[in-house]
């Protein structure tokens, strides 16, 4: 289980899009809308609930964040890149 506070994430099964669980139980592609869970039991419950929605999302997990100006910020580089996209410009026609 991730250190707290944490955010619950998964990928949409149909599209692969990275999504985050929001406080009202939706799945949002924006980390800024994610529910910051402070409590281990609630975190476990949220993960268990997503595990039952396999047609919609796959491989849910939680990762630790810190909250800055009310917005969750991932502690790891991996989750930062996952939430913001590649750090390099995508190839474009010259």
């Amino acid at each position: 289980m991730a250190a707290l506070p944490a955010v619950v994430t998964a990928n949409e099964t149909e599209t692969g899009t990275v999504v985050y669980r929001t406080p009202d139980g939706r799945l949002s592609p924006n980390l800024s809308e994610a529910w910051v869970v402070e409590d281990a039991e609630r975190l476990e419950a949220a993960l268990a609930e997503l595990q039952t929605q396999q047609a919609i999302v796959c491989d849910p997990y939680a990762f630790p964040v810190k909250v800055e100006a009310g917005v969750p910020m991932p502690l790891s580089t991996r989750e930062r890149i996952r939430s913001q996209g590649p750090t390099v410009a995508l190839p474009r026609a010259s």
Binding site: T13, T15, G16, C58, R82, G85
Partner: peptide, 27 residues
């Protein structure tokens, strides 16, 4: 898989056999 008839664990070896990985941002 999309109808929820098979789980991700059951589907994963099938998708890998067809070259489909889950990466950081997408398939």
């Amino acid at each position: 898989r999309l109808a929820g008839e098979i789980t991700e664990d059951e589907f994963k070896p099938l998708r890998l056999q067809n070259g489909v990985y889950m990466q950081l941002h997408a398939y």
